[in-house]
Design a protein around this nucleic acid. Structure first.
Lengths: 200, 200, 200, 200
DNA sequence: AATGAATGAGGATTCATTCAT
DNA sequence: AATGAATGAATCCTCATTCAT
């Protein structure tokens, strides 16, 4: 009678612990021993499932972004009216962050890591590109449908919109008391999208 | 006859070296020995002027932001027409980054550091607040002057605008080939500010 | 009906795997996990038959030398003419090495181990002594039979002869291209034995 | 007033300590911390002078062989009678080992290392080749001068002779009580060289 | 003022060994 | 009998910091 395979459970358990420790201490300061303890494992136990700290960091990054990426890609094939979908994207962006704003610490650290490590940079680049692709496609549809001004640059605007969201969260994580991120999200996107409309 | 005090020159020399090394390797990976070498000093020489790595990092952060902070504060007391001053802010933001885009690596790292170290968080928070204050004051003036819609939230919009700039640069630093930051800057701010106007 | 006892087969299987891995990586670098894999067993499976790495190393050493030792001891009771037996020893030494020169890596490693571990030293000492005993006995017979010069020291010459063989193989294993071990064997033993003869 | 440069002294001090520890524990088992302690330094102190354990091992190997190598090479340019020089080589080989027989442990370990590490193999190969070159050159001179039999293979005999010396020491280090290495040296080389002579 | 040799705590990683199943 | 997940002690190496000169 073979024992049930606990590999997936263990890996999940380790990832959960790693996220917790990385959030608290940052990728560089985090110690493997602490991750092991947080995962109720020995150091060697963590190494049974992960080759090393690098791989753990990379896997955490993938793990963090996977859900978001899938949602964004799904939005591309959506058939509903444009403004509805745009607002849905914004709403889901807000919802995700509201539920797990503490993950922001990780994202911030990833941005720093990306400048030093090529593999991590590539992961982030893929994620960002996916978001921009969705936003740019929506703008293109808006232009085609006559909703938006025809002289717009969809890619530049997608970059600006994603940047706005990201930059607002950044400020919130640095100074939570001074920044009402949700209000800024809504005000900023309303103004920005308003500026795109043909007859505002 | 006392020798001339070279302290300021030395500190500047060390800061310059530290910026170079921090940019290349990140705050955490950077080694004091490398900074010393870059500054043409011995390790002990660096410690003569700086208590330790922490202080050096902090000082670099202050140094990086000081110029920007002063320019922004000056804009508040400016008497010229609003749109002119807004555009000037945008232009100078662009100019600064164009000349020293490699400093972005440091900023990104600072964001990560801020989540771990309270003192560094405070420095960043101050800088961000200063920018938002300037932008919000301008929006308030725009509303008072009847240029902009009266239902706007100046603070939220300032957060959104600063976030947009910062977020665009973030994307550019992660994926330079995929992001035309200057175009995104101009397209984004045009749309955003356009959305604020009473009669666009 | 009890299952057939596979213990001996398993041990042989493990020894075979251990020899392969020890040859490749050396005793110290070799990992139990690799030996287990090579033996198509789990790590725990190896430990079922062997108390630990130490015992495995020791057993491999015994295993390697057993065949040689038995052949040498047989030569002592041989009734054939002296020179014939000497040449046979030399030929079989050559034959053994020709067929399994890769085992030399193990022997070399054993010599190093012997200096650190007393039990392993004893195993080697026994093997070497057996060879010397055979060679010395032959020399004594040669002197008694009037073939060789009466002033010879049989033990010293046995040491020299065994050393010569061993030392030639050592050089070959270090620098295979520079050393024709078989030629050196034959030239060396011809000269050495020639120097022992009464009327050469 | 600059302090005197202690680098050479320190390196010598570390090498001395490393030799002691390597002799006692073998290259692989030896711990950097023990070497540091033996050298009256901290671990970091050792690393100030040596990049790592590898470099320390390599340097020790070079250090051990340098003297021998130089003596051997000098013998090639010697103008004295052949037999005198041969005997001198043998005598000096004996003298060196008599004074530092405990170094043999290191040599033995090097042989084992050589099978695993290419750089170390090359160091040993160079040393062995140098010895063989000297011995072969002497044999060639012996043949040319009519002292030795013309059908000899100088290279093979050089290999055999060096092997004999090395192999005798090997046996001595494994079983000091059973092996009179000096006697074996003299008996073995007398017989071997006797076997080379034209009119013995 | 400045040097740079020296310190030593800290952290990632390895691997022989164990043991619940 | 056999598995293989899990343990944790051991060890190499790094680097911020100190201090005698």
């Amino acid at each position: 009678m073979p024992r049930p395979d606990v590999s997936d459970a263990r890996r999940a358990q380790i990832i959960r612990a790693a996220i917790a420790v990385f959030q608290r201490d940052g990728f560089t300061n985090a110690r493997m021993a602490d991750i092991a303890q947080e995962a109720d494992l020995s150091v060697g136990g963590v190494y049974w499932y992960y080759k090393g700290k690098q791989e753990l960091v990379t896997d955490v990054m993938h793990h963090i972004f996977t859900t978001d990426l899938e949602r964004m890609r799904a939005a591309l094939d959506d058939e509903r009216p444009l403004l509805e979908r745009i607002n849905e994207q914004i709403d889901s962006f807000i919802a995700v962050y509201r539920e797990s704003s503490e993950l922001r610490r990780l994202v911030q650290d990833m941005y720093a890591q990306a400048l030093i490590d090529e593999e991590r940079r590539a992961i982030l680049a893929e994620y960002m590109q996916a978001f921009r692709t969705v936003m740019a496609a929506m703008t293109r549809q808006g232009i085609e449908q006559g909703l938006m001004r025809p002289d717009l640059d969809p890619d530049a605007l997608a970059t600006a919109l994603f940047g706005m969201f990201d930059g607002i969260l950044m400020q919130h994580s640095i100074d939570p008391d001074a920044v009402d991120w949700e209000l800024s999200f809504r005000a900023g996107s309303a103004a920005l999208i308003g500026g795109l409309m043909r007859h505002p």
